[in-house]
Design a protein around this nucleic acid. Structure first.
Length: 180
DNA sequence: AGGAAGATGCTCT
DNA sequence: GAGCATCTTCCTA
C-alpha cells in the first residue's frame, strides 16, 4: 500500500502500517534515518488523550490539516515530539513516532544526542537525534525535509497502552514492531 | 535495575 | 496557575 493511501485510512491502521518504514531527515545537510519501531495512534477530537480533544487551537492546527502533515510540539518544556497527521482532513488524527532503529547518519545523531547509546528510543530522543524541532510543525512528509519511504517489513506487532497519558488509558493504541 | 526528582516552557482555563 | 503524549541524573539495592 502506498504511503498516501495508508495515511488516508483509519489512524490505527496507519500507525501499524508505519512500523518498519524508513524515516529520513535531511535537516542540517546530513541525512539521518531510522526504521520506525514504535508508534502510538491518537484519534483527534474523539480521543480524550489527544491534543486535539476539545477542538482546534493554535498549537494543534497542523493536526487538522491533510494526511502526511507533521505535528511537532514541545513536551515538558524541553523536548520535541513529532506526529504524522492522518486523514480524513479535519479529523485531527495523528500517529506519534516514539522510537526506531538508527540506520543512517549515526555519527550525526551521536553528536546531537551527546552520547552513543539510546539514540532514538523515545519520542524526544528521536526528534533530537534527527534535528527535528518546532520549525518542522506544519511541514509534511511528502515534501521534506523529513520524509518517509519504503514498505513495512514483515514482523510481529504488539499492542499495548499508550505511554505517559492519564485519559483513555485502556485503549491499546501503542504499537511496537517486535521482530525486524 | 528501578524508582525519585528536577529541568523547563508553553498552552489553555 | 495547573498540567503536561519526556529525559536524565542521582541515588538505593
Amino acid at each position: 500500500m502506498s504511503l498516501e493511501e495508508l495515511l488516508s485510512g483509519p489512524v490505527v491502521d496507519a500507525a501499524r502500517g508505519l512500523l518498519g518504514r524508513r524515516l529520513t531527515s535531511t535537516i542540517g545537510g546530513n541525512p539521518t534515518s531510522i526504521v520506525i519501531l514504535e508508534v502510538e495512534a491518537y484519534s483527534g477530537e474523539e480521543d480524550p488523550a489527544s491534543h486535539a480533544f476539545g477542538g482546534e487551537t493554535p498549537r494543534n492546527e497542523a493536526m487538522f490539516g491533510p494526511p502526511g502533515g507533521l505535528y511537532v510540539y514541545r513536551s515538558y518544556g524541553i523536548h520535541w515530539c513529532m506526529n504524522v497527521v492522518c486523514g480524513p482532513v479535519g479529523t485531527a488524527r495523528a500517529v506519534l513516532l516514539r522510537g526506531g532503529m538508527a540506520t543512517e547518519g549515526i555519527e550525526v545523531m551521536e553528536r546531537r544526542r551527546g552520547r552513543s547509546i539510546n539514540l532514538t528510543d523515545g519520542p524526544g530522543k528521536l526528534c533530537q537525534a534527527m534535528g527535528v524541532d518546532g520549525s518542522l510543525d506544519r511541514s509534511n512528509v511528502f515534501h521534506g525535509p523529513v520524509t518517509i519511504s519504503g514498505e513495512p517489513v514483515p514482523g510481529s506487532i504488539s499492542a499495548s497502552r499508550r505511554i505517559g497519558i492519564t485519559k483513555a488509558v485502556v485503549r491499546e493504541w501503542r504499537f511496537v514492531l517486535e521482530r525486524y
